[in-house]
Design a protein around this nucleic acid. Structure first.
Lengths: 223, 223
DNA sequence: AAAGATATGAAAGTATTACTATTAAATTGA
DNA sequence: TCAATTTAATAGTAATACTTTCATATCTTT
């Protein structure tokens, strides 16, 4: 039962006006998730979003200064949510190996259903992360944005799980590399399985992505 | 000595007029590589390129129907070149393990110098692959473009190296997943090392990316 | 219930992008 | 040298990514 009254707080640097503070704000976030999924990030515009929610483009700009800022917001929301799930699923588990396996599964499995506690559709958001999130940090402004904390949530999640790796094998040299490889890799593999299947080895219902990365991590960090 | 009179042939579907067929064409490709590196793909435009090479925007459109098409061309050129290096470096090598190690090194090491046999700067092209190539296939048109062969060269390289994996361990279940994870992973790690260093474990001069992936592959496919 | 503050909407405007189309001039090649 | 091809110049279009201004609606406080 996931329906706790949990609330995900987003760093105020990531919006101009908090979208959670009004109905319009929530509708902007909610509908943008649907539209980015439908149209792809490139074809999605604030003008189209305005039409879809029956609001004005200029009103949307009061919440997010650009569609890029909105994407960054969504990505941070996603990682905050994953972090919450991670902490929730690993507390009271003593075995470091078990904790790590839980984390890897969380990173690599598809989000299939949304036991919703908010207005945000996590199934669609997961798809956005898979298809669009690289666009957020592959910009000429990364360094500047990184300084402002735009990628903090993601980095914190990687740090948490890297610590689990070190708990198992304190001498392992590359924990961050391993974990970010797993996360990004799993997203790529999911995308490839749908669009460029010859780059992957996914078979219907066999859970290969989760199996591959779980096994990979275990073998790599073995002492 | 790499200065063979080797020539990289690009699938004619990937351009409107072959840029290698004229000085203007070569200048378009050559200068676009520099400009995409300097400005980033988003800020790069055919108008700016026209100004830079002292030519007209409309002339550039006779070679490539869009800047996206140009990026796809560059990516294919890159993978053709890697494929050439791969084949060249692995012929006459009998040990499958040695061949695989050569391939992994080729994928994961930085391109540092350009023993040029063409007008294309491979050091810069490698940087474009690292920073921009995900943008080529994270589009709503992937499926269509994939059918037209836009990603064929990359897929062929992955296939070649997957075959090496199977030569070592014919029972290994996920050769394509492994190889595309290594390639994409190494690119990510290189990017992270410069812009989001807490997601990686790169240390100056220690070749960690190559070491990490070489070791990873070896451990994963061990019988 | 009035006054003030704040949020939203409507409309118009700007600079730029990603092209397309037309026509003229230059270059090349048989 | 004549024709074909290539490139350049110019202009034009629809859309994008915003910004600005001002009016109106709604909420808050007294």
């Amino acid at each position: 039962m996931e329906s706790l009254s949990i609330h995900i707080t987003i760093n105020p640097e990531l919006y101009t006006k908090n979208p959670e503070s009004s109905d319009l704000g929530k509708k902007i976030v909610q509908t943008s998730i649907e539209m980015i999924n439908d149209l792809g990030f490139e074809s999605f515009t604030f003008r189209k979003l305005g039409v879809a929610i029956g609001s004005n483009e200029s009103s949307i700009y009061r919440y997010f200064e650009s569609k890029h800022a909105l994407l960054v917001y969504l990505i941070n929301w996603y990682w905050s949510w994953i972090e919450y799930k991670l902490v929730f699923a690993t507390t009271n588990i003593t075995s470091a190996k078990d904790k790590l396996n839980i984390a890897i599964t969380l990173f690599t499995q598809e989000v299939k259903e949304d036991n919703s506690f908010t207005f945000i559709n996590k199934v669609l958001l997961n798809k956005i992360i898979i298809s669009e999130s690289a666009k957020a940090y592959h910009t000429k402004d990364v360094d500047e944005e990184n300084k402002k904390g735009f990628y903090k949530t993601y980095k914190r999640v990687v740090q948490r799980v890297s610590d689990m790796v070190l708990e198992i094998n304190p001498k392992f040299e590359f924990p961050h590399m391993l974990i970010s490889t797993v996360i990004e890799g799993a997203h790529h593999q999911r995308y490839f399985s749908q669009h460029l299947p010859s780059l992957t080895d996914v078979e219907e219902g066999k859970n290969n992505i989760v199996r591959f990365y779980t096994d990979l991590v275990q073998k790599i960090i073995a002492k």
